[in-house]
């Protein structure tokens, strides 16, 4: 049983390893992702270890000759359970600390503000402009055909200078405060390379923050079933060195009327 199940697995491991490292994760490009990856890999190795261990015990028990049945409840049941409890407690505490660091507190006040809106089936990103304030949006004004997919009120002073893009461009090394919104149905904002995932829920604004570290282009996916175009609801995250980001922002502003 063990053999048949692990043999193809090993073979496949090599296929994957050829382009992606031992467990096949896409390379991490965010600050908090390092610890996350480390913890994930630790978990995976522990799970694999336990998997093999338990199957070995099962196999040895089945292959060995008949003996009297085990009777020692403490040794067979309670001690392993205690060991597992300690292991799980350790993993939980470790994971909770990472989770707390990522989610319990808001972003740094100096973080770059970007609003992310999901709608069937595209992501839009809004930068607040020089006044650092997002203008109000109205559902009545939404007109994707006329270049106003979010319904930003052009008459509003805060809204007039807002930049809306379909590509998320961020500077490397600066914390970003994303505010997630959804216009119609629930969408899942996910950037695998940033180890980031959060649903965007209509009627709610959800903040997440992170710091991209490595310049490059990364996939943004939708990970919550949102309708027939769910599979193609993707976008690109472009992380630029800070100076290039500044000039990108400037060019955007110049292009705007």
């Amino acid at each position: 049983m063990i053999l048949t199940s692990t043999l193809p697995l090993v073979a496949r491991l090599h296929v994957v390893a050829a382009f992606l490292g031992p467990w096949g994760l896409p390379p991490n490009a965010s600050e908090h992702g390092l610890a996350l990856d480390h913890h994930l890999l630790l978990n995976l190795w522990i799970a694999l270890g336990l998997l093999v261990l338990i199957h070995v015990i099962l196999g040895v028990g089945l292959l060995g000759g008949r003996r009297a049945e085990p009777a020692d409840l403490w040794r067979v049941e309670y001690l392993p359970l205690a060991a597992l409890a300690i292991l799980f407690a350790f993993l939980t505490v470790k994971a909770e600390r990472l989770w707390a660091a990522a989610r319990y507190t808001g972003a740094d006040p100096a973080a770059l503000q970007v609003e992310v809106t999901g709608e069937q089936f595209a992501w839009y990103f809004r930068y607040p402009g020089p006044d650092a304030t997002f203008g109000p949006t109205r559902a009545q004004l939404v007109a994707p055909g006329e270049g106003n997919p979010l319904g930003v009120d052009p008459a509003d002073a805060h809204g007039a200078d807002d930049e809306v893009t379909s590509e998320l461009v961020l500077p490397a090394g600066r914390e970003v405060d994303l505010r997630l919104k959804a216009q119609d149905v629930i969408h899942g904002f996910s950037v695998p390379a940033m180890r980031l995932k959060q649903n965007a829920v209509p009627g709610q604004t959800i903040h997440i923050h992170f710091t991209p570290t490595t310049p490059g282009t990364y996939a943004i996916l939708c990970t919550q079933l949102c309708g027939l175009g769910h599979y193609r609801m993707n976008a690109t995250l472009r992380v630029l060195p800070p100076d290039e980001f500044a000039s990108w922002l400037a060019s955007k502003r110049r292009a705007a009327p």
Binding site: S5, L40, A47, A95, E96
Partner: peptide, 24 residues
């Protein structure tokens, strides 16, 4: 065997920070 194999990934998914990567 299957319960073990499937069950071992449960505690991984049960850690929110890891689920953030693995969810869906």
């Amino acid at each position: 065997s299957l319960f073990i194999t499937g069950g071992l990934t449960g505690p991984i998914l049960a850690q929110p920070i890891l689920d953030e990567y693995l969810h869906n």
